[in-house]
């Protein structure tokens, strides 16, 4: 059986403490800048806050993983190097990286610290993953959310590193690390600035009939009826009209969250080492509820009991959930 570590999100120091107290095996977090893919206003850690967080987590036996999972634009790599230097000085247990240059710098400068390959690297074949392992000493790959469990099992047999998969939260299936949809409307990059649908460009407009439109950079990307559940204002989950679909339809993806609670035994059997919960941008309430639920489920499975996992539908986007490609490639 794999270790089945629970990897939990923290957008603030309070969220980190909440995740640790709720039973996280490891918590992942980032600095207040473009070096991570949740560079949202008011979120993330200062170096001083991270120092305290590392102490808090380590005292309780929890690891801290630092996300440096964006791509430095030409000439700006120093910000990523400095972040790595700070993380190493503060004693983080691993770096989560996507960019080869960042991976190379850390591998050469801090060979004693583990490197995890971010989902932002979009490495989904044994050949690609082995390349990262051989050249940068990657110890774990976070797989994109496009693979079935049989495919994960096959990949596990062919790679020399651990596998981490998402089990709950945002279900983003654009080729991760390559999505430029936000760029087209806002000029800011998900991959280099760490901002998907930056809040400064988002506006919600309430109509007289109780409907709500979500707009990004002045473009309406969805309109929810008075009783309809809402989703995030991301272009990939927008609802659009087209000549053949005048009623409006989800052209790319739907507002829905991943929930693999019922597939945990199969994932463990397939050799997945670590389960990742998405949501550094979410509240302590979300962190507490989701981490507790999955902690109990994983512990039950490890002990040979049936997992009795809490219903987390209220915390899902659009209050809808899916097992996505993990169940079948035909999920849409």
């Amino acid at each position: 059986m794999s270790l089945a570590e629970l990897i939990c999100p923290a957008g603030t120091p309070a969220a980190l403490r909440t995740a640790v107290d709720a039973g996280a095996d490891a918590v992942y977090c980032g600095f207040q800048d473009a070096t991570n893919a949740r560079n949202f206003p008011g979120l993330n850690f200062t170096p001083d806050e991270l120092a305290e967080a590392v102490t808090y987590a380590h005292t309780r036996g929890t690891k801290v993983l630092l996300a440096l999972n964006t791509y430095p634009p030409a000439g700006k790599v120093d910000l990523w190097r400095q972040a790595a230097d700070t993380g190493a000085r503060l004693g983080v247990d691993a770096f989560i990286v996507a960019d080869m240059g960042v991976a190379d710098y850390i591998a050469r400068t801090y060979p004693g610290i583990r490197l995890h390959l971010s989902v932002q690297a979009a490495a989904s074949s044994p050949e690609a993953i082995r390349y990262y392992c051989e050249n940068f000493g990657i110890k774990r790959v976070v797989l994109p959310r496009i693979l079935t469990i049989p495919e994960i099992r096959e990949i596990r047999r062919e790679i020399p590193c651990e596998i981490e998969t998402f089990i709950f939260g945002n279900h983003g299936l654009m080729v991760e690390g390559r999505c430029s949809l936000t760029n087209y409307l806002t000029g800011q990059s998900t991959n280099m600035d760490g901002v998907c649908s930056p809040a400064s460009d988002v506006e919600y407009v309430r109509d007289a009939d109780g409907s709500m439109s979500s707009q990004l950079a002045g473009f309406t990307i969805d309109r929810f009826g008075p009783e309809e559940k809402a989703g995030y204002p991301t272009i990939c989950k927008g609802r659009y009209t087209a000549p053949h679909r005048p009623e409006g339809y989800y052209a790319f993806e739907e507002p829905v969250s991943l929930n693999l609670s019922r597939l945990l035994p199969e994932l463990i059997e397939a050799g997945v080492h670590a389960f990742k919960i998405e949501g550094r941008q979410r509240s302590k309430s979300y962190v507490r509820g989701v981490v507790r639920a999955f902690r109990a489920a994983v512990d039950d499975i490890k002990a040979g009991r049936d997992a009795n996992i809490a219903d987390l539908i209220a915390l899902t986007e659009g209050q809808k959930q899916t097992q996505g490609a993990f169940e079948t490639k035909k999920w849409r």
Partner: peptide, 9 residues
């Protein structure tokens, strides 16, 4: 959770 309260309207 604020996002959940937003999703539920």
């Amino acid at each position: 959770d604020g996002d959940a309260a937003f999703f539920s309207r």
